[in-house]
Write a protein that binds this DNA or RNA. Structure first.
Lengths: 277, 277
DNA sequence: CTTGAGCTTCACGTTACGTCAAGCTGTAGG
DNA sequence: CCTACAGCTTGACGTAACGTGAAGCTCAAG
């Protein structure tokens, strides 16, 4: 018969742990003195405790361990639990490899230049989004900005809170004859087009969900937005992602200056993870 | 200017997170309406929030992030934090590889035989231990048990709570002329020998600490203890550990039956992790 | 008998929020 | 103007697995 302290010492665990396991009915002393409340354990129980500790080492939760111990569990269930846990660990390891990668890149950045280069690209998950949109070919960025502004002015009040987006399907280095889509996000899916004026008609559309989207925020006029794409491209190369899918730009803040230098835009590019080399 | 809900939606985070980050002074709205208490954020802040989320993705704690943001941090400090974090992740990955290994082994065990074979071997860390001990060559196990019993009987009361251990330096398959060491653990290091009788003298000794020790508990007479060693050996092979160092046996419960069938012993074998194949 | 070590329960701290609950605010529609 | 109703506020509790005291009781030794 051992007291908590002795048993804890033998098992190389803390007394608190033994009391806790008693409290949650996971592992109880074989006897408790009714008058003093002292817990007493026997050597025989060591095997049981070791079993619990071993399962804990595998990363099972105490709750899961409790179920396996209570022996009201079939070997199929146990197998399921283990398989699940294995999958979890594998997921974690992939994520951790990427973290290591990113940390290494940042350490290198610190060494190469003194400038503190904070990370600007992050991965987000975005759902389907309903919108009203119009797609046109524009001569150049100036025309686009004009049109953009006009659409914003014409937009009815009830869409005032709706955020605008822009999709450019031309090559990123093309500066003329741009294939552009402007749109405004709406909460409910719309079923009929909305005429803003004689020559501007917004059609119901939907932006597809993406599980992994690399995003970054750029401040400045539309002409300077390529810096954002450059950043995302560089980041993706370093972190083993491949751009795939149609990128979009979200207007976070509209320009108040004519030159658009206070415009804030979020770039979103769907990406897909590549196996790490 | 966005309200919490709008900003949260844009950033793809929860409102609760924004309020929490405000509460812990990690990321505060640019303005709070004094009368209503409403929080207001601007698009410009999105960059800041993204930076926080990116650092969080690397696995830094909010506290660490706070320090990097507060910019009262040198690039050396940041580098230190990142290196530390990298080391942590690498450690984790090693541990996880071993977990995967062990889970696979257990899954296989489930498939091979229906018998639920719970894990009996666990890794412990043990510190230096002071003891009083005697080393002898014994003819066989029976002699050893007799001697063992005698030592226990002769041991003074003040060591009554002291646990006994036994080290066998002969080959595990040797059954005669065993090189045995018996000892009793003491709390304080002893400086002088203790004479139990004319022919039994206990000398101060110290068992070295071991970072990783594979342990298992066996119930039964001394003669059957090899089963424990077999189990540890098998487990080590499966989990890529190599036995290195002097193993020891701890007496958890002494025999009351003459045949020793109710004796409980813990075997401890120092091991060293091998690189996983 | 005293003393000190060891035991008991109680309760708060940890991390990074999720999840109600009660109550206030702001806007749209009748 | 009144009334919904959505959206905001603070506050508090829950999570997982214990660590760390605090206040008080018990046990064995001297």
């Amino acid at each position: 018969m051992y007291t908590v302290g002795e048993f804890a010492h033998l098992a190389h665990v803390s007394k608190r742990l033994l009391r806790y396991y008693d409290e949650i009915d996971l592992f109880k002393p074989i006897q408790i003195d009714p008058s003093s409340g002292y817990r007493y354990y026997t050597a025989k129980q060591m095997t049981q405790l070791n079993r619990i500790l071993a399962l804990k080492e595998l990363g099972l939760t105490l709750n899961q361990i409790q179920r396996t111990i209570a022996d009201d569990i079939s070997s199929e269930e146990l197998e399921g639990m283990l398989r699940l846990r294995k999958a979890e660990i594998e997921q974690q390891m992939i994520a951790e490899q990427r973290r290591i990668r990113e940390i290494e890149a940042r350490l290198e950045a610190i060494h190469n230049d003194e400038t503190n280069t904070p990370p600007n690209v992050i991965i987000k998950q975005v759902p389907d989004i309903h919108a009203l949109s119009v797609r046109r070919t524009m001569a150049d960025f100036a025309t686009a900005v004009d049109f953009y502004t006009r659409v914003q002015t014409l937009m009815p009040r009830r869409f005032a809170s709706g955020r605008f987006y822009c999709i450019c399907r031309s090559d990123t280095d093309t500066l003329h004859d741009l294939d552009l889509e402007f749109g405004v996000f709406v909460n409910k899916p719309q079923d009929k087009p909305l005429a803003l004026s004689d020559d501007v008609m917004l059609n119901p559309s939907q932006l597809p969900a993406h599980d992994k989207m690399a995003t970054t925020v750029v401040t400045g006029a539309l002409e300077t937005i390529h810096r954002g794409y450059a950043e995302i491209t560089r980041w993706s190369a370093i972190n083993s992602y491949r751009l795939n899918g149609t990128h979009r730009e979200l207007c976070l803040q509209m320009a108040t200056h004519l030159d658009g230098r206070d415009m804030i835009t979020e770039i979103q590019v769907p990406v897909e993870p590549l196996p790490l080399p």
